[in-house]
């Protein structure tokens, strides 16, 4: 007999994770050193080459500007506004993407009536709609929220549709053999199978919602990070522009990190399988 059946529970996941860590070269201190050298070189070489500060500021100037903006609170207020637009737009995109995607995946009527329409609308560059949204919804937060939602909606929708169809054919047959209702198929088979797709949709949509909010602010706003970037550009405060880019980058990274951590937790079976391969 090849297997003893009363083995204890399998080794905890952490052990597997430990084995798949990055090799020693990329350890935390190694990475730190790498960036230190990179930014150090930037700091020294760029001014030495005679590049003006308004073209490419040195890292310390960017940090200073970032610090000032955060401590005086101007960046904080802007961040709050942009973040609000981003989150509300994102939630709208996610909810509508899930609902319409679910309808399209589950009902042929919606697939035939709505999907082509959505795809056609998708091919319009939505950024070009920003001026129109401004006319319709004004200079307030509303037009930015809608811009964010518009840009983030499609990936969520497509991932929902594809995800709900990504179930295994043999599993579907199992459900048929048990005479499972459509609701049961959705609940026990299609939705769980869609989770990795939904996570991917959430991830892509988040960054796009941020993009939408910023573009909305570019076109016409009186506050927010996108507006402030333009103001800083007019005054040739390039270090300030970079400081805001840093903030935007951090927001994007934070969103991505949270969503993929969530994904690993919810779609644990997938992470486990990939770890095995």
């Amino acid at each position: 007999m090849t297997e003893t059946t009363n083995r204890p529970a399998l080794a905890p996941a952490s052990e597997e994770a430990a084995q798949s860590r990055l090799p020693q070269v990329f350890s935390t201190s190694g990475l730190l050193l790498f960036y230190l050298v990179l930014f150090g070189a930037w700091e020294v070489i760029v001014p030495a080459l005679g590049v003006k500060a308004y073209v490419l500021p040195v890292p310390t100037a960017i940090v200073k500007s970032l610090y000032a903006g955060l401590t005086t609170g101007t960046f904080v207020v802007d961040l709050g506004i942009t973040f609000f637009e981003l989150i509300v737009g994102y939630i709208i995109a996610v909810v509508t993407g899930l609902v319409i995607g679910g309808l399209i995946a589950e009902f042929r009527f919606f697939e035939r009536a709505v999907y082509p329409l959505v795809v056609a609308l998708q091919s319009v560059p939505k950024i070009a709609l920003a001026p129109l949204l401004l006319i319709w919804f004004g200079f307030g937060l509303q037009s930015k929220i809608i811009m964010a939602a518009l840009v983030a909606f499609f990936p969520m929708l497509v991932n929902t549709v594809n995800g709900l169809r990504a179930y295994d054919a043999d599993m579907y047959e199992l459900f048929l053999s048990l005479k499972a209702s459509r609701w049961q198929q959705l609940r026990y088979l299609k939705l769980p199978a869609a989770v990795p797709f939904l996570i991917a949709g959430l991830d892509v949509s988040f960054v796009l919602a941020l993009l939408g909010a910023i573009v909305g602010e570019f076109v016409g706003a009186s506050k927010g990070l996108g507006y402030t970037v333009l103001q800083l550009q007019f005054t040739l405060d390039t270090a300030g522009v970079f400081a805001i880019l840093v903030i935007l980058g951090l927001v994007g990274v934070a969103g991505h990190t949270i969503i993929s951590a969530l994904g690993k937790r919810v779609a644990f079976w997938q992470a486990a399988n990939i770890g095995r391969r």
Partner: peptide
């Protein structure tokens, strides 16, 4: 003869199990 594996997930089992 799978006693002790009730809470395991399929990917933690061998093909025979």
């Amino acid at each position: 003869t799978l006693t002790g594996f009730e809470k395991s997930y399929p990917h933690e089992l061998s093909g025979g199990m």
